[in-house]
Structures are given as structure tokens and as C-alpha cells.
């Protein structure tokens, strides 16, 4: 999983602590989210996207997207 969280966060001039406070999680969770090591719930993904002024679709991408769930 890859994310653009860091890109959006730095563009807004937010620190990891500030983003964590906005979405009510620990700073470590933001660290692992940015590294793509934590798979968040849909609720948290939505909260992060909202805090960064973007969409979930734009923030997260997966390596197997070419395969597509509904491909055919």
C-alpha cells in the first residue's frame, strides 16, 4: 500500500502531531500510515482524507490495482 499522506500533510504545513490531533490518533499511527505499513479502517482513512482536504481514493493506492476487483 502506498499513501500520499506525507505529501498532502507537508503541503498544508502540518506536523505529524497536528494531523494526529485532528484525526484523534497517536502520532505513531500517522508515522506508520505514511510509511504504508498500517492498513487503516475506512473511518480513519476518511478522517485523514477530510483533514487533508482530499479524498480516500487520492490518498491511498495499492500495488494490485491493475488487477482490479471488478476487472473483466
Amino acid at each position: 500500500m502506498q499513501t500520499r499522506i506525507k505529501e498532502y500533510r507537508t503541503a498544508l504545513g502540518l506536523t505529524q502531531e497536528e494531523l494526529a490531533a485532528r484525526v484523534q490518533v497517536r502520532r505513531e499511527t500517522i508515522v506508520f500510515l505514511e510509511k504504508g505499513k498500517y492498513n487503516p479502517s475506512l473511518r480513519l482513512a476518511h478522517a485523514v482524507a477530510k483533514a487533508l482536504g482530499t479524498t480516500v481514493d487520492d490518498l491511498f493506492s495499492f500495488g494490485d490495482e491493475e488487477g482490479g476487483a471488478g476487472g473483466g
Binding site: A20, A21, V25, R26, R27, T29, Y38, S41, L44
Partner: peptide
């Protein structure tokens, strides 16, 4: 350690 930040979140 946590101050006003949440002690627990969905990951923990």
C-alpha cells in the same frame, strides 16, 4: 507520555 493525545487509537 501522552498528554492530551489519545492513549489508545484503532491501531493500538
Amino acid at each position: 507520555r501522552f498528554g492530551n493525545a489519545p492513549e489508545q487509537d484503532e491501531r493500538s
